[in-house]
Simulated assay, not measured.
Amino acid sequence: MRIDLSGKTALVTGSTQGIGHAIAAGLARAGARVAVNGRRAESVAAAIAKLEQEVGGGVFLPAPGDLTTEDGARQVAEAVPDVDVLVNNLGVFGASPALEISDAEWRRYFEVNVLAAVRMIRTYLPAMKDRSWGRILNIASDSAVVIPAEMIHYGMSKTALLSVTRGFAKEAAGSGVTVNSVIAGPTHTGGVEDFVYELVDSDLPWDEAQREFMVKHRPQSLLQRLIEPEEIAHMVVYLSSPLASATTGGALRVDGGYVDSILP
């Protein structure tokens, strides 16, 4: 299977680290020009320098801007006016007792994890439809389906993102543009390491902490380990390609078998 995204421009939101960084690298290896997004120009520049070392010959474009604001979204759109592949990866997560989540936190999770993606889809979908080709990927989570007791505000936002995906896939129907969600399972990133140590003994070495976290807090996982960001990126690169032309409106799982379902 040969995936060639030469001549395509991709934008990956929240791509200065973690899953977004891995997706940016994967798309560049497939030949796409990749716009890297973060809130600050300095972090974007540092991420691009690292990506250029990782991907020889990769072409990366700076697209700084805070996508939780309309001004930030406009800033990104001005930096990258034409996008063939949009990956809405930006997100926040964290543990909090259900009855202690404030109104402000509920709003913040919706603003970052849902509304920022909606803004970007509104920005780029019309031109994709005019060109009769485009790919929109929203990075969701197993928490959209299996709501974690320790972060129901996060689960709510990712469930909403699945609805956003299905709805905009209908808006793009028959246009040659596909819109899909990728349901990522528990993934090994710096932020997740911090999260793991919030829930297990912070004095444990990482390998032991990871095993304890999976056994106690994610026992449904059939993989029985954290997923590496590159494993999420592989699915995103495939769905971004012409090879995935008949897949739209879907929620495709890269969750290590975490969601106990026979459906995708």
Rank of each mutant, 00 (worst) to 15 (best):
132 S>L: 13
223 L>E: 12
217 H>K: 13
128 M>D: 05
209 A>T: 04
188 H>L: 15
108 R>G: 03
129 K>T: 04
139 I>K: 02
134 G>V: 06
213 F>H: 00
166 R>I: 07
172 A>R: 08
218 R>K: 13
188 H>E: 14
199 L>C: 06
118 V>W: 07
115 L>Q: 12
173 A>Y: 14
185 G>D: 10
157 S>C: 01
225 R>A: 15
142 D>F: 15
168 F>S: 02
191 G>Q: 08
193 E>C: 13
131 R>V: 11
226 L>W: 13
161 L>M: 07
142 D>M: 14
187 T>H: 05
220 Q>Y: 14
167 G>H: 11
195 F>T: 00
136 I>F: 06
197 Y>I: 11
121 I>E: 01
123 T>W: 06
112 V>A: 08
131 R>F: 13
182 V>P: 00
138 N>I: 10
124 Y>D: 03
125 L>H: 09
128 M>W: 09
165 T>D: 02
160 A>C: 07
152 I>D: 02
130 D>L: 14
197 Y>R: 15
219 P>I: 13
154 Y>T: 01
211 R>L: 12
190 G>C: 12
141 S>F: 13
165 T>F: 01
152 I>Q: 03
217 H>T: 04
218 R>E: 10
135 R>M: 04
122 R>P: 08
115 L>M: 13
195 F>Q: 02
198 E>G: 13
182 V>T: 01
133 W>V: 09
116 A>N: 00
187 T>D: 06
154 Y>D: 03
166 R>C: 00
116 A>R: 10
194 D>Q: 12
176 G>M: 01
109 Y>V: 08
176 G>L: 03
212 E>R: 10
136 I>G: 01
193 E>P: 10
139 I>Q: 01
144 A>K: 09
217 H>P: 08
194 D>A: 15
194 D>L: 12
127 A>M: 01
163 S>M: 02
173 A>K: 11
184 A>C: 13
143 S>N: 10
124 Y>V: 09
202 S>V: 12
181 S>E: 05
140 A>D: 08
179 V>R: 08
118 V>G: 02
161 L>W: 06
122 R>A: 11
188 H>A: 14
112 V>R: 04
200 V>M: 05
214 M>L: 14
163 S>L: 09
155 G>D: 01
187 T>S: 09
221 S>L: 11
142 D>G: 12
209 A>Q: 10
166 R>T: 10
115 L>P: 01
159 T>L: 05
199 L>V: 09
126 P>Q: 02
219 P>E: 14
198 E>D: 09
137 L>G: 00
121 I>S: 08
191 G>D: 05
215 V>K: 12
117 A>M: 06
206 W>Q: 08
186 P>C: 09
191 G>R: 06
168 F>M: 05
197 Y>V: 10
162 L>P: 00
136 I>M: 00
182 V>C: 03
120 M>P: 07
119 R>K: 06
